[in-house]
């Protein structure tokens, strides 16, 4: 007997939370086979599961290894569902440019934030690691991003974050973008000093911050 879409959402969510990649793929394939909406299945199934995983991370039930395997299951399900998204599903997302600042090749934290942003309905352009400040600005302009997310784990590369904000100011486009920063040596005090719009202490916090920042920019625009 065919499962209801609600049952499949639950199945997708559980398989992400329980780190079962094959089960996520099977559930996603059934969503497609039943002709259920792919966007809804991602939102209510895979993303919901990743959000529950993020919750367990905050409660220190899950740690980085678990979150990575959860995200593997989520992406495996996503790969099945993505070709079945309608064009208007894709268009309505907030866009964000993310990357690790020049001189730093640690990207485990950045990858987590990227994953969580994607599951929270953001369209993420990931520049990778060791990225020059100017490239963040160029890319943000090019794709019409609302948000620039900068990460570093090294004190030696922190100043590059300030360079991004400075360049936005110099080009007179500071107000077009929100800038959020994170990573080991970063603090709220540092974010304030370089004129960033926000700082997040971990991946779960980064998602809340991203949502509130784009929410804020929307209300300004309206």
């Amino acid at each position: 007997m065919a499962k209801t879409k609600e049952a499949l959402w639950q199945e997708l969510s559980d398989s992400v939370l329980e780190m079962e990649e094959d089960r996520a793929v099977a559930a996603a394939e059934e969503v497609v086979a039943q002709g259920y909406d792919a966007f809804e299945a991602i939102e209510r199934g895979l993303s919901a599961g990743m959000e529950r995983a993020g919750q367990l991370f905050e409660e220190e039930e899950y740690f980085i290894p678990e979150l990575l395997i959860c995200s593997d299951a989520m992406y495996a399900g996503m790969d099945v569902l993505k070709p079945h998204l309608r064009q208007d599903d894709i268009a309505e997302k907030h866009k964000v440019v993310i990357g690790v600042i020049e001189g730093d090749t640690h990207d485990i934290g950045k990858n987590l934030v990227k994953t969580m942003l994607e599951t929270s309905g953001f369209e993420v352009t990931d520049l990778g690691r060791d990225i020059a400040p100017a490239r963040f600005v160029e890319t943000a302009k090019e794709i019409g991003a609302q948000l620039i997310a900068l990460s570093t784990l090294m004190t030696t590369t922190m100043e590059g974050m300030g360079a991004v904000v400075r360049q936005l100011r110099e080009e007179g486009i500071r107000d077009n973008f929100k800038v959020m920063v994170g990573g080991g040596p970063i603090s709220q005090g540092f974010a304030d000093r370089i004129g960033a719009d926000g700082y997040a202490v971990n991946a779960a916090e980064a998602i809340r911050l991203a949502r509130s920042l784009v929410g804020a920019s929307e209300s300004v625009a309206a």
């Binding site: 980085i64 290894p65 990575l68 593997d72 485990i108 990858n111």
Partner: peptide, 9 residues
Amino acid sequence: ADRLARLML
């Protein structure tokens, strides 16, 4: 680091 984290599980 991320490969080691995955290998743990």
